[in-house]
Design a protein around this nucleic acid. Structure first.
Lengths: 157, 157
DNA sequence: CCTATGCATTGATGTAAATCAAGAAATGAC
DNA sequence: GTCATTTCTTGATTTACATCAATGCATAGG
């Protein structure tokens, strides 16, 4: 498990690579995202401190996700084989499944405003660290739509 | 790990229950779903033969999902504790993560037609076994929208 | 310091899908 | 079998959000 420093903007993994790695964030902020056929970016996950960032693709197939650093970060890198050998953290895996379940339910049932509220709950401390357009991309809405949602929410306070 | 027979329509688990179980489907078809505050149903997952159906909620907290049988089914039931003790199937877990990742990307980036095509790929053999309105609920669209999508797709063949 | 580049906001317009409504078809109960 | 209930389809209308476009603000680089 190698420890590395990366500068803001560093691309750690490209869509299409075969042996996608696992990244454990010690400090800083990563993001994983995909680009669809229309060239549009969709953020799959943010990786702040202590999060595990990875592409859960099948072994030995091209991965789907790009991973890069939104902030200068210190991260541990491991191959999936390494992690499997030493026995992965089951609790972390279950926690991950829970997060994804919540996200799926959110995406199926929520409008723009509810999605934003869900995001604030899931990532309480990173709203100020991430540009609005990335939050919008994570939520599956446009920056314009998110801007308007935040406007009405801020008027309520 | 108990083996049980359930009739079509049997409710195995309610939203709000504390000790949610794990269900391994031997034959038949289960579904897990939630009901939002407007009373609308959202299907989280179908469970055909050999699928594992479960609510990935935190231990000892109320679960989110209802689980019931869409067909007469034969299933194995286990508590999460049991499964953790005997060491869960890592490959199945990773496969599950992959499925969910694909679903999330689909929900963020696809329109009604693409969602339906994604569904047919993910569950090739159950389109005929599941009423249209449930497929629509799984895809996060209305039955009306799905009906229209299928109409234009069938004209193309 | 000034200018270029990217980001956020705001307004006008377009559009996919939701909602509402009614009828047809399928399914199930008796 | 008939009747009742649910599901599916089709059409008309509405709506939330996307798209397009313009402007204002930052931040970064020379």
């Amino acid at each position: 498990m190698k420890k590395i420093n990366v500068k803001k903007g560093t691309l750690l993994q490209q869509k299409g690579e075969i042996s996608s790695k696992i990244y454990l964030v010690e400090s800083g902020l990563l993001r994983s995202y995909t680009i669809d056929k229309k060239g549009k970016e969709h953020i799959y996950m943010f990786g702040p401190e202590n999060w595990l960032v990875a592409d859960n693709c099948e072994p030995n197939t091209p991965c789907q996700l790009f991973i890069d650093a939104i902030e200068d970060s210190i991260i541990y890198v491991a191959t999936k084989e390494e992690l499997l050998k030493e026995g992965p953290d089951l609790n972390a895996l279950l926690k991950r499944l829970e997060t994804m379940q919540n996200r799926i339910i959110m995406l199926m049932s929520s409008n723009a405003k509810e999605r934003y509220e869900h995001f604030v709950k899931t990532y309480p401390n990173i709203t100020q660290r991430v540009p609005l357009k990335m939050v919008a991309s994570y939520l599956g809405i446009t920056p314009e739509a998110l801007s308007r949602v935040r406007q009405v929410l801020s008027q309520k306070t």
